[in-house]
């Protein structure tokens, strides 16, 4: 199975105000296949978000290689990386990041608008009009009744469900979720986690999940931990993914 995401000896360093260098990620290697779910735990500031940003092509590693599907991000220009991210990667954030003045449905449709896509692969790989796809996703996350409302009127859980629908609209091969339940209460967190894993598995996408929540992390096929910039298997022998 060819990986949808492959990180090979990725290093990320930042130059600090005093001129010294801080290494956030130190020779991190990771591969995620289609339909595979991986969680990454770690303290605040351990580099979880940076790892996800590098995986999405939002940040450029100081060293190492990042491959999304067949494409090596190092050789791509900013517009090419943006296009690839738009079509290949779905993103879910801790603070939801919905556009407050857009409706729920318009928020879900936003990736299609940006990518200028009118059709997406449907359940039987048949092309489906994006509007219909958005409606189906909203129904799947239980928000079909609120599709026309401005996003600012939603509760936290509803916002995150909308964000998940948005992330899945274009049928991405990889879903990156950064503390998706970190801003929700226990009940809301459970609902969102169920939804996230069900939809990812239904669609056969790979999932890289950064979280503090051990229960959520435990639902992933593979559990990893970031410590001192390096990636370790979490509470079990290192899996084949953590090379």
């Amino acid at each position: 199975m060819s990986p949808v995401l492959e990180l090979d000896r990725v290093v990320r360093r930042y130059t600090q105000a005093d001129g010294s260098e801080l290494t956030i990620l130190d020779s991190v290697s990771l591969g995620i296949g289609k339909g595979e779910t991986v969680s990454v735990a770690g303290r605040s500031g351990s580099g979880k978000s940076t790892l996800l940003h590098i995986a999405a092509g939002i940040e450029i590693p100081s060293e190492g290689t990042v491959r999304l599907g067949e494409r090596d991000l190092a050789g791509l220009s900013d517009p090419e990386r943006s296009r690839l991210r738009g079509r290949f990667v779905g993103l879910v954030f801790q603070f939801f990041h919905l556009v407050p003045y857009l409706t729920v449905r318009e928020n879900v449709l936003l990736p299609a608008r940006i990518a200028r896509v009118h059709e997406v692969p449907g359940e039987a790989e048949d092309p489906t009009e994006v509007g219909a796809a958005a409606d189906r996703l909203l129904a799947a996350v239980g928000l079909e009744g609120r599709a026309r409302e401005p996003a600012r009127r939603l509760s936290g859980g509803e916002m995150q469900r909308t964000a998940i629908a948005r992330a899945l609209l274009l049928g991405p091969a990889l879903l990156l979720a950064d503390e998706p339940t970190g801003n929700l209460d226990a009940r809301g967190a459970g609902t969102v986690a169920d939804l996230l894993f069900r939809l990812v598995r239904d669609r056969g996408a790979g999932l890289l999940l950064a979280t503090h929540d051990p229960e959520l992390a435990a639902r992933a096929d593979t559990r990893l931990r970031l410590r001192g910039g390096r990636l370790f298997a979490d509470e079990r022998p290192p899996s084949s993914n953590a090379r």
Binding site: P79, L91, H97, V99, P111, I114, A115
Partner: peptide, 16 residues
Amino acid sequence: APEVALNRALGADRGQ
């Protein structure tokens, strides 16, 4: 700025 960043995260290029 975060809204702009979201657009960038969702695949919008600088021109967009």
